[in-house]
Amino acid sequence: MIPIESESKTKDGTPVVYISKENLIPFMKEKKDEGYDMLLMVTGVDYVDHLEVVYHLLSTKDGRRLLVKTKTDEEVDSVTGIWPGANWHERETYDLVGIRFRNHPNLKRILLPEGWVGHPLRKNYPMDKKQYVNLGEDGEDKVSYDPKEGY
């Protein structure tokens, strides 16, 4: 049995489990064996003093749902080895919230162009500092702060 830090429920009645980030991978493996075969989404939440990763799990056999949360400081283990579908969700969380996933096969930005500075869903992201994108010679995106350099 892997120790659970705390338990609660969301407003719609889904159980929530907090787990320490060291125990995340063994806990997730255990949950997969218990029948939670689908990972619906991976979310990052910025609580200013710490970051939190939220995993929504679903069992397609009996319809049970579970939210697994873990507190982190920018780095956490990737669950792509357990659910391959976590790949894009983790890339998106890295892109927008800035949580790095260890052992991820291809941890690159997915929605924003490569080279973008900052992670927009952080609460301290400067919304007034605009960045501009253009195409480079090699067909890849180039990002800069200069309005003349792009659109």
């Binding site: 924003l112 162009p113 960045q131 501009y132 994108v133 253009n134 195409l135 995106d141 792009g150 659109y151």
Partner: peptide
């Protein structure tokens, strides 16, 4: 909507 990632492609 024209996004920053799409704008150079539209120009092209």
């Amino acid at each position: 909507t024209v996004t920053k990632k799409m704008a150079p492609r539209i120009r092209r």
